[in-house]
Design a protein around this nucleic acid. Structure first.
Length: 111
DNA sequence: CAGCAGGCGGCAC
DNA sequence: AGTGCCGCCTGCT
């Protein structure tokens, strides 16, 4: 079992699959792009996840801030507003960020 | 620790 | 309808 590609409702597009996968991530937890893609049924399409999140509107309900790279860090430019926003939200959920790095060992979302 | 190459999907031409 | 280029990545050297 390579983890069920979540099928509560068959996504019309793979992008939608990313959305659904993202919804399954609980607060206080984080997930990597690769893991998210894998969860969406697109193993290896880590960049896909990134592209999708990049296209999300600022008013989105999706917890895009819970998505970080495999290094356990925010993949956004440090001088970007999104970076600060993401970090702020994560901390608000109880995720401790040490020197810009998040402990996947502790907060990593393990389906 | 930093740099290069690889692989997957979306969107534009 | 087909091909090419780009991207909030990942893993290895």
């Amino acid at each position: 079992m390579v983890s069920a590609p979540l099928s509560p409702s068959p996504a019309a597009t793979n992008r939608e699959a990313i959305y659904l996968a993202l919804m399954t991530v609980p607060a206080g937890k984080v997930i990597t792009y690769g893991q998210l893609a894998s969860l969406a049924g697109l193993p290896g399409a880590a960049r896909l996840a990134g592209s999708v999140l990049c296209g999300l509107p600022d008013k989105t309900e999706l917890p895009w801030h819970r998505v970080i790279n495999a290094q356990g860090k925010i993949s956004l430019p440090v001088d970007s507003s999104g970076y600060k926003k993401q970090m702020q939200r994560l901390q608000a959920e109880g995720v401790q960020i040490k020197n810009g790095k998040i402990s996947l060992r502790i907060y990593g979302y393990n389906n």
